[in-house]
C-alpha cells in the first residue's frame, strides 16, 4: 500500500500529467491535420480524376499497409536526410498525420460511396451541378454516417501516440517509463495509471461520438 502512496506522489502524478498533456497536444494536432488531408484525399479518390486518383489511391494503400512504427522512423530519420529537419514532436505529428490521413481517406471515401447513388442522379435531375450536389446533398449525409468510424480512428490515433516513445517523444508512455525505470516498485502503479489515463481520454471520446450520433439521428 505504501508503494502506491509513494508512486502516486504529487511529483510523479504531475510528471505523468505533463506527458498526458503532450499526448493530447500531439493527438489534437494530428487529428486536425489528418482530417483535413484525409478529406481531400478521400474526395480525390471518390471523384475519380484521371491518373491523379489512381496515384493517390496507390500511395494511400502503401501507407495503410505499413506499420506505423516504420513511418515514425522514416519521418524522424529519413526526411532530415532529404533536407527537412524536424523536432521530435513535429516529426511525431507528421508521422501520425501521414498514417492517419491515409486511414481517414479510406473511411471518408467509403462514407461517400455509401450514400445512395440515386441521390446524386435525383439532385442533378433537379438542376443542381455535380459540385452543388456533392456539397449540399451527399457530403452532409456521408458525414453523419462516418462519425463512428472517424471517431474510432481518432481513438486509434491517440493510442498510437504511445509508439512515439521509440523516437523519444516525451509523452505519457515515455514519462511512465522514466518513472518506473528509476524505481521498479512503481511498475504496477504506473501501469494502472497509464491504463486509467489512456482509458479515460479514449472512452470519453467514444461516449462523445455516441452522444453526437444520437443527437444527429
Amino acid at each position: 500500500m505504501q508503494t502506491f502512496i509513494d508512486a502516486y506522489s504529487w511529483v510523479n502524478i504531475a510528471f505523468l500529467l505533463k506527458g498526458l498533456w503532450l499526448t493530447i497536444e500531439v493527438s489534437v494536432a494530428s487529428i486536425i491535420l489528418s482530417y483535413i488531408i484525409g478529406a481531400i484525399l478521400g474526395l480525390v479518390r471518390y471523384i475519380e480524376v484521371k491518373y491523379l486518383s489512381a496515384i493517390v489511391g496507390f500511395i494511400i494503400d502503401l501507407i495503410r499497409n505499413l506499420p506505423l512504427l516504420l513511418i515514425f522512423f522514416f519521418t524522424y530519420f529519413g526526411l532530415p536526410n532529404m533536407g527537412v529537419r524536424l523536432s521530435i514532436p513535429a516529426s511525431a505529428i507528421l508521422a501520425l498525420t501521414i498514417f492517419e490521413s491515409a486511414m481517414l481517406a479510406e473511411i471518408i471515401r467509403a462514407g461517400i460511396v455509401s450514400v445512395d447513388k440515386g441521390q446524386m442522379e435525383g439532385a442533378r435531375a433537379n438542376g443542381m451541378t455535380y459540385w452543388q450536389t456533392l456539397r449540399y446533398i451527399i457530403l452532409p449525409q456521408a458525414q453523419v454516417k462516418m462519425i463512428p468510424a472517424l471517431v474510432s480512428q481518432f481513438i486509434s490515433l491517440i493510442k498510437d501516440t504511445s509508439l512515439a516513445t521509440i523516437i523519444m517523444l516525451p509523452e505519457l508512455m515515455y514519462h511512465a517509463q522514466i518513472i518506473y525505470g528509476q524505481n521498479s516498485n512503481y511498475i504496477i502503479p504506473m501501469f494502472l495509471a497509464l491504463a486509467a489515463m489512456y482509458f479515460v481520454v479514449c472512452y470519453a471520446l467514444s461516449l462523445l461520438s455516441r452522444y453526437i450520433e444520437k443527437r444527429v439521428n
Partner: peptide, 22 residues
C-alpha cells in the same frame, strides 16, 4: 471490449513483458 479497445497495444504488451514475469 471497452477496456482493451481504449488502451494502447504497447501498454498491454509491456504489461505482459514486465509485470507478469516479475
Amino acid at each position: 471490449v471497452e477496456l482493451f479497445r481504449n488502451i494502447p497495444l504497447l501498454v498491454v504488451t509491456m504489461f505482459f513483458y514486465i509485470v507478469i514475469p516479475k
